[in-house]
Simulated assay, not measured.
Amino acid sequence: MTGTVDARLKELGIEVPQPAKAVANYVGYVTSGNTVFVSGQITAKDGEILYKGKLGDNMSVEEGQEAARLCGINIIAQLYAATDGNLDRVKRIVKLGGFVNSTPDFVDQPKVINGVSDLMVEVFGDKGVHARAAVSAPSLPLGIAVEVDCVAEID
């Protein structure tokens, strides 16, 4: 890894993993023109599913933020693959879609998804400022707490 974004990742102590392989009939990302659509990334690290649970039941907002941040690291891994290993090609994180496994009365989905939003700004600076959605889901695959997808512009 070389470049401005790579230096920032190193400074933050973030190691970009290999991008996760799809587990069903989809791919990790699709590039159309200068737009990269990253499939929903989950709370997996080194092949292990982390952060299982439901916000408002058995998980705190802080744990949810950590889960969202991990989803963001996995998004960066997909972007790394989409840019042939040159994250400086990312011109803008356009939009994040955050899904939070939560109880019907839980209302802090935006606080949870701040975990990934903050990461994108930390890593990409002004290019990481994005539009987003933060919504509740009654359940998510494998019982995970958070899933996040991404739209990014590259050159």
Score class of each variant (00 low, 15 high):
residue 14 I to D: 07
residue 122 E to Q: 15
residue 130 H to A: 02
residue 80 Y to N: 15
residue 106 F to A: 08
residue 40 G to W: 00
residue 42 I to F: 14
residue 94 V to A: 02
residue 3 G to N: 02
residue 54 K to E: 12
residue 61 V to N: 11
residue 143 G to T: 05
residue 144 I to M: 15
residue 7 A to P: 00
residue 138 P to A: 14
residue 88 D to E: 01
residue 55 L to F: 15
residue 73 I to S: 01
residue 155 D to N: 12
residue 18 Q to W: 00
residue 49 I to G: 11
residue 19 P to Y: 07
residue 99 F to R: 05
residue 37 F to G: 03
residue 129 V to F: 01
residue 143 G to Q: 08
residue 21 K to M: 07
residue 47 G to E: 08
residue 148 V to A: 07
residue 127 K to F: 00
residue 23 V to N: 00
residue 77 A to D: 05
residue 111 K to C: 10
residue 66 E to G: 08
residue 42 I to H: 12
residue 86 N to Q: 08
residue 25 N to C: 01
residue 149 D to N: 13
residue 68 A to V: 04
residue 2 T to C: 08
residue 9 L to D: 08
residue 17 P to C: 03
residue 56 G to D: 15
residue 106 F to S: 10
residue 147 E to R: 04
residue 17 P to S: 05
residue 129 V to W: 01
residue 124 F to C: 04
residue 68 A to C: 04
residue 103 T to G: 10
residue 43 T to N: 11
residue 126 D to P: 01
residue 154 I to Q: 08
residue 15 E to S: 07
residue 72 G to M: 12
residue 140 L to R: 08
residue 41 Q to A: 10
residue 59 M to Y: 14
residue 9 L to R: 02
residue 59 M to W: 02
residue 21 K to Y: 06
residue 154 I to M: 02
residue 2 T to A: 13
residue 114 N to H: 13
residue 9 L to G: 13
residue 81 A to L: 13
residue 113 I to F: 03
residue 102 S to Y: 06
residue 105 D to Q: 06
residue 37 F to V: 10
residue 32 S to V: 12
residue 13 G to M: 14
residue 153 E to F: 15
residue 153 E to T: 09
residue 7 A to N: 06
residue 118 D to T: 13
residue 29 Y to M: 06
residue 105 D to G: 05
residue 95 K to Q: 14
residue 26 Y to E: 01
residue 83 T to Q: 09
residue 83 T to A: 03
residue 1 M to T: 09
residue 64 G to N: 12
residue 96 L to G: 07
residue 142 L to A: 04
residue 34 N to K: 11
residue 128 G to A: 06
residue 81 A to K: 14
residue 75 I to H: 05
residue 100 V to L: 03
residue 110 P to A: 12
residue 3 G to A: 07
residue 40 G to R: 09
residue 47 G to F: 10
residue 33 G to T: 03
residue 114 N to P: 00
residue 13 G to A: 15
residue 133 A to T: 13
residue 41 Q to H: 13
residue 72 G to A: 14
residue 142 L to R: 03
residue 83 T to M: 05
